[in-house]
Nucleic acid binder design. Structure first.
Ligand SMILES: [Mn+2]
Ligand SMILES: [Mn+2]
Ligand SMILES: [Zn+2]
Ligand SMILES: [Zn+2]
Lengths: 137, 137
DNA sequence: ATTAACTTTGCAATAGTGTTGCACTAACTT
DNA sequence: AAGTTAGTGCAACACTATTGCAAAGTTAAT
């Protein structure tokens, strides 16, 4: 993905593109899976943890990425679809491979609609499936 | 719940009842919601964190309690049903109230059956719904 | 261009959760 | 009773997440 393209994307979500942000976004977009702060930190030795952290937070607030808490101990982040506003209808299942630790967005599997008991209201959900991915099987 | 009853329960799951274990189990059973290590620690000042931690781990291994990772930052634990073996068919949805931080087992809502793409196998899942509970509404 | 105002980054420190080694004690076995 | 095993308390540690603050970079206004 072109840097220019990324910057347009960020701007369209009201986030000023900076070198660091573009780099973080690019990495997430290109690897195509959910990455944790530590994962990202490893991929570019030189960049400060807190800088990446703040980039992710900014992205999250502006629906550029969504967090995935896969139970591995660190929250991971994956790029959102263009139209995503991270509301309950945009959410999908995530798959966590217990062998390789990779976490994948199952965009083809929206989170099923749940009818809660009287009195409960909800606006968010996480549906994580743990198992073995084709690559590890 | 009687201590004797608890001890029988633990024994039936091959866990030797001790004062600490009985206490931890009793607390989880009586509060009827999922509690974290820190929650438990608070409830009985005198008991060591690591002791509670190990009790929970032992319980978990023997299907006496199940972990709930509700995204709050600490894993919580709730008592299992008698027949539970924590396999995919025993799992249910959990509700996390973002106002009060309480996490509740929705035992009436089993985790829906999901058809994954070819090549994926799974044996566990977490389905957390975030919203506001009746008490906080 | 120069200054002022605002934003982003790097660094260091901190809080919180989870986890383990080790020594001590309680419980169980023979 | 002596030996063996299991459970507990304490302290230390690893790791994730988060923040204050100062330095560097950007933008906007004179
Ligand atoms: Mn996703
Ligand atoms: Mn439950
Ligand atoms: Zn895998
Ligand atoms: Zn509530």
């Amino acid at each position: 993905m072109e840097n220019k393209e990324i910057d347009k994307k960020l701007e369209s979500k009201n986030v000023k593109p900076t070198a660091m942000r573009t780099l973080v976004y690019k990495t997430l977009a290109e690897t195509g899976k959910a990455l944790s702060l530590a994962d990202l930190e490893q991929r570019f030795e030189k960049v400060e943890r807190s800088t990446i952290f703040r980039a992710l937070k900014t992205f999250e607030e502006n629906f550029i990425v969504h967090p995935v808490d896969d139970g591995s101990g660190s929250v991971k982040y994956a790029v959102c679809d263009d139209e995503c506003t991270c509301n309950i209808h945009d959410l999908h299942v995530h798959f966590y491979c217990t062998r390789c630790g990779r976490t994948r967005c199952m965009k083809e599997l929206p989170i099923p609609n749940i009818k809660l008991p009287e009195g409960y209201t909800y606006d968010n959900a996480q549906f994580i499936i743990n198992g073995v991915c084709p690559r590890c099987d």
